[in-house]
Each structure stands twice: as C-alpha cells, then as structure tokens.
Design a protein around this nucleic acid. Sequence first.
DNA 1: CTGTTAGCGCATTCAT
DNA 2: ATGAATGCGCTAACAG
Lengths: 421, 421
Amino acid sequence: MTVTLADVAARARVSAATVSRVLNGNYPVAEATRERVLRAVDELDYVLNGPASSLAAATSDLVGILVNDIADPFFGIMAGAAQSEIGESGAEDDTGRAGAGSGSGRAGSSGRVTSAGRTGSSGRAGGEKLAVVCNTGGSPERELTYLTLLQRQRAAAVILTGGAVEDPAHQAAISAKLTKLADAGTRVVLCGRPPLAGGEAVVAALAFDNRGGARRLTEHLLALGHTRIGYVAGPAERTTTRHRLEGHRDAMQAAGLGGGAGGGAGDGPGGGLDGGERAGAEPGGARGAYDEERLTVHGLYDRRSGYVATLELLRREPEVTAIVAANDTVALGACAAIRERGLRIPEDVSVAGFDDLPFSVDAVPALTTVRLPLFEAGARAGRLAMGKETPPPGGIATIGAELMVRGSTAPPRVDTAVPGR
Amino acid sequence: MTVTLADVAARARVSAATVSRVLNGNYPVAEATRERVLRAVDELDYVLNGPASSLAAATSDLVGILVNDIADPFFGIMAGAAQSEIGESGAEDDTGRAGAGSGSGRAGSSGRVTSAGRTGSSGRAGGEKLAVVCNTGGSPERELTYLTLLQRQRAAAVILTGGAVEDPAHQAAISAKLTKLADAGTRVVLCGRPPLAGGEAVVAALAFDNRGGARRLTEHLLALGHTRIGYVAGPAERTTTRHRLEGHRDAMQAAGLGGGAGGGAGDGPGGGLDGGERAGAEPGGARGAYDEERLTVHGLYDRRSGYVATLELLRREPEVTAIVAANDTVALGACAAIRERGLRIPEDVSVAGFDDLPFSVDAVPALTTVRLPLFEAGARAGRLAMGKETPPPGGIATIGAELMVRGSTAPPRVDTAVPGR
DNA sequence: CTGTTAGCGCATTCAT
DNA sequence: ATGAATGCGCTAACAG
C-alpha cells in the first residue's frame, strides 16, 4: 500500500541504507547513485515515514512553540517570526522577512507555483523542521500537557513565549518538565518570559524589559503633568503583569506619588480582581500607597477587561486624568469606556498602552505605547532554538522596550490641576 | 537513560503488552493490575515514546492546522477554536469556551495549578491529540511543504483554513497531496476555504458566504445613496478576494451601476496590482465596466496595503463617497489614508470592512462590516477533524455572513450628488 | 563509497 | 485477563 524505503532502494538498485543516506544528506554518496535514488523517490512519490525515522534516530524534526493566546497578535507575531526562522533551511532570509509586516497572502508568489510541484510534493524536504505552535490559552495545565506531548514526540526544540504564571507549584512543575526535555536533547528557549530559577535546562531566555518600559511610560505621563493616573493591570498572577506594574509604581514613587511600601521587587500584586469592596472613598482623598491600590484594577489581557476595569476606575476616581493599560488591546477597551462616559481622549483623559501592536497606530487618536520588538525577538528565539545563533552570555538577554509617544497622551486639563476643582 | 515500556512492565511485574493496554485503555484489564501499572508509570515518570508508538500503530496523534498568517486574528481565532476542540478529550466544553473572547491569561486558573502536577506531568494523557498550527505565510510552496511534513508524521487530521490560491498547478498539487493524505488515513477538513474540485478526499468543507456577505454590504451602501464606491481588494489570485469582489459587483450590476461584462462568475480578477497606467481619466467620466476596474485596486490583506490602495483610489477618483475594503485590517489602513487627506468618516467618505474582527467595534467610528462566525467555524472544523460531528450532506456547508451596520457608513454628502460638483 | 546487520520502543496478533 | 512473539520503517554502526 504505502511506499517504503525498501521500495525506493529496489527501484534504484541500491540498498536501503544508501537511500537513507541520500535523503538525509549527511553522508558521502556518489553523484550518480544519488541522482538515481532521487529519481526513484520522485517516481514512486515516496514520503519518509516520520515516526520510523524518529524512532531509529532518537530525534524528531518537530519544534514546538507555546503561546498563551493564538488569537492575540502579540503571540502571533512572535510565533510567526520564530516559525519563519525554523521552517526555512537556514537559507532564504528573504521569505522570512516577507511575513514581517503581518502581511498575509503574498501577492507575488503565484509565479513560483509551478516549481512547487517539485519542491513540495516529493518526500524529501531537506533538514526541514516542522515548526508548530501550540495554544495553551494561558492555562498552566495545558502548558504542561503540551510540554508532555512535545516530550513524547521527542521534539527537537521548544520555545515558550509570554509571561509565566507565578504559582510556585506550577513554576516547579514547569522547571522539572523543562529539565527532562533538556535531558532528552530538546533545546529549550524562553521568549518574552523571565528566566527560570535554575536556568541550566534552558538554552537561552529572552526577557522583555517590561519594567523599564512601564517606568518610562509613566514618567512620560508624569512629565506631562499628570498625577492621578489609573492603572488597568493584567491578571495578577502573571509575571508580565507584575513587572509592568512595578515599573509604573517605581516611576510614581520617584515622583513622590507612590506609597513607600510595596514598591520594591518581589511583592505579590496586591489588588483584588474585582474592586468595589472599599466603600465610600472620598474623592481627592489621601495619596500614597492607598491611592496606588485604589487606582489599580486587575483584569485579563483583553479588550473587554479594559472596558470594564476602566469603568470601575472612573467610578472610583472621576478625577483621573490618565489611564495606563496593561497592553494595547486593553487600552482599546479603556478608550471605549472613556468615550462612553462622554470624555475626550486625550483632552479629558490620556490613555497609554503597551506592546505597540500594529493596530495601535491606527487608533484614533494614535496610541501612546511602549514598543516591544516582537518580530525580532521571535526570530531570534527561532534561531536560538535551531542552534543557528550563539546564546547570549549567561543564557539571558534583556530586550529593550521603547517608548512611543503618540496622540493619545497630552497634558491634563488645566482646571483639573486645581485641588477640589 | 530513558524509561521504556519494559521498565514499567518490570516495575509492575507484568508484561509490556499489559502496560501498553492500560495506557491505551482500549482493552479489558483487571482493575488491580491496572492500578499497579499506573503507579509504576507515575513512579518511574514514564513518558510514552511517540515515534515508536506511531510506528507500531501506523497513526499518530498529531493534528495540523494550516493558516495563512498566524499574526492575523482572523486565523488566530479559527485556529484557537479548532485547537480547543481537539486538545480536550471530548469532554470539558467549558475550557473550550474560555478561549472564545480571544482572552489570554485566564485569571482564575491559578487555583487548579496543583492538580497539574498530576494531570500533566505523567506520560499518560489519554487520547490527547497534539493540535498544532502551521503558518504558511500565504505561500503555496510552504503550504505544500507543511502538508508533506504532516503526511510524513502520519497526522491524524489536517485542517486547512483561509482562501486558496487560484493557480491551476497549485490547486492540482494540493488536491493530489490531500488525496494521498486521505488515503493514508488522515482526515482532511477545509475551513473557510472553498471545496476542492474532486472533493472525495475531504471529510468536510466549510465555506464562508463571502459572495453573499459582500453583496449585502454593497447593497447597504447603495441603499444609503452611494454610487461611486471604491473597492480595495485583496491579492488577485485568492479565492476569498474573488468571491468578495464578485459579490460587490453583483450588487453594483443589480443597481445598474456595474459593467455588463465581467460580472459573472469564473472570470479572473482584472485589476492590476499597482494602478496609474491609464493616464488622465477625466473625473466623472463614463460609468459601467470601465469605472468598475478603475475603482478597484488590489493589494495584500494588511493595513499598509489598505492605506496605499486607498490613497491611489482617492487619486484616481476624488469623488468616491464610499470605500469597501477587502477586510477589517485593510479598512483600518483605508481610514488612515482618508483622514490623512483631510476627509471625515463617514461624513465625507464611508468605509466598510469584512470579517468583524474584535477590534472593528473599537474603531472610531465603529466599522460597518460583515460578520463571519470565525470561532464557531473553527470549532466545528475541529470537531469534524476529530470525527466528533457528522459531516454536512455532501461534505459541504456554507457558513452565513451577517451584515453589521455601524458608524463608519452613512449617506453621502448631498452636494456630492450634484454632477460636476 | 556501498551493502549487511541490528536494533529503536511499542502495538499487536496469537496463544494461554 | 495476561504473556510471548513478531514486525512497523528506518538509521547507525560495522564491514567490505
């Protein structure tokens, strides 16, 4: 029924071993026989049996990329970049770049279609790796499950993207799993995720400077003259959320607006997920740590959360003149909430996001945000996973975050600065 | 070094066969031994060898989902939905839904973390399928390559999403490849992609009613009083582009505004990718087929293309009162271009998109568009791929597209209706 | 350079 | 209900 190596060997009048050698290309073979084999392969339309190959070689060509939310461009961009570095066999930097601008449907590619019948249809496809992305949905369980599945497949490499959940038990479980993967020869790379405690198992960890970016963003707002800044944070248990929040509070404190306590590193996020428990906080009340918590609302990294949280923020403190969102998507929801309350952006309330996703520049007004080089980071992670690039010293690299000032932030209204209004 | 079935068997004092049976659960095993085996598995921290298992069983638990652009939420939403149906072992409809709103970072999940140490770490993970998404970048070659890679892995199922490239050679190559996959036992499902010519190889094809949706959208514009409607189309060679364009032209013709020729089905898209070749077309010139082409500009399915194409459209015909974009992302670019020219939306120019991606409702003004039930379609494709749902009659189902009228479309300015202005 | 020989780890017959 | 054998298709030593 299905064509095997032996069939090809017979057709080409060589041994199975020889066929294997030409297919894998990692062994000297006479040019003559080589061509004969290749022809037989094409004629028989032979396709290598992956499982058999992996079993014998004890390695597979599978490379897994774990993401929290595949519908979020934040992850899509990183995953796509990584995949482009992995899919191509080292060469063809061109095609990799093509996917950069999140552009789909390459228009000019139809001309090369005919050649595809040759490149793609036959079973040989050089050292092609199968780069696949797995959607964890942000669930620790699914993350572990996927890791096990990948381990089962003897994956060649695994790339973990996005912030981690700060649960000790889960951290430990992940760490243990990654160690086992590494022991089995799988290359593990972290992208946009803080380094592990005992990071020996990991080839490299690329961490975003969330804290620094957040700090610069809030400093920008402070320089504009804002003092009552609301913060719509992400899920409390994620590292990304904590780091961005810390950066924000660092800046607030430096400006003498934050609470002295709780500003340092390592403290768990304090705010509850849904507010409303502290009743009757008088507007324009005390500053400091109290305000800090009162002006922080946690939610998910999606639009709806931004909308809901902003409404809550506006309710708690109608005098806010600026709102910093956990990311651009959340910022969009915040904008919707602000407008719905009849306020203008940025005249009445400034809004800022994080990530600088493609749509941010198209918001009206364009969103002030912090740019994360997602594509570059993803591509680098891909190369690291393939061993095409040497890891940074210590296996850890911090990736810069650049402040992008645009139309959604402006100085606060003058009359708002007057106490009591 | 690595723990094998035999090790587990020895530890549990049974034969390897028995261990295999408990692990696969598809064979009667005494409860006592069963537990003994399971304990041994946990104690030894055994992880099944996927390749070996697949080789022996001649099937794997890999399910591939092909997308054109992973950074595009259009695909991300479908892929995520499909993956949620595939990943979970039939049950737990709840978790599947959780990913719906494109929400990442499930906030409430930390409570269940500890249980993960049990569910996820051990080698057994019931009939878990490994749902993976592969990013083709819209390139036919990569599409074929991925299909080959998946074939090599003896994938259990493959889901192809998004419009196809209308190149006969490529169509044939894909068809042939899918037939081979089906012959090898792989279940093939098409999602948001038109049925194949000889569709026997395919379990089911879920096609979006792009044509109908586009027609209704343009009818809406016509009802509003627009007559000069620019169309920013996608890549000329894709089915999605053609179908949407045809729907648009159908509506135009029905209103007596389209050219008699070229309106029917099956004609290749006429407009060149970059215009400007026909010089000095006098404004307010002849209607009909001529205008139809003049008012159509092709580009990619991304924001930049929408921006550039709209600028071109505005140059060719400053009197356009409405612009229909290939999709929402393109519409965003169109909006940017329109504003840059000092025009207001919708007062001066109405804008419409397609797909109704999450961000569309947040555009200012909110985007009139055509809603495609991406999540539902993806989920259904996932179930079809898993054999959890019976295919529609004939294996083909058309998925409705619903017009969403929002703020970005309005009647044209009265003075614009005056000829010569 | 090429052919021969052994397994890789597991799922299945077939027995019992 | 369980154990013993057989082979899935391929790669990797070894010869030669």
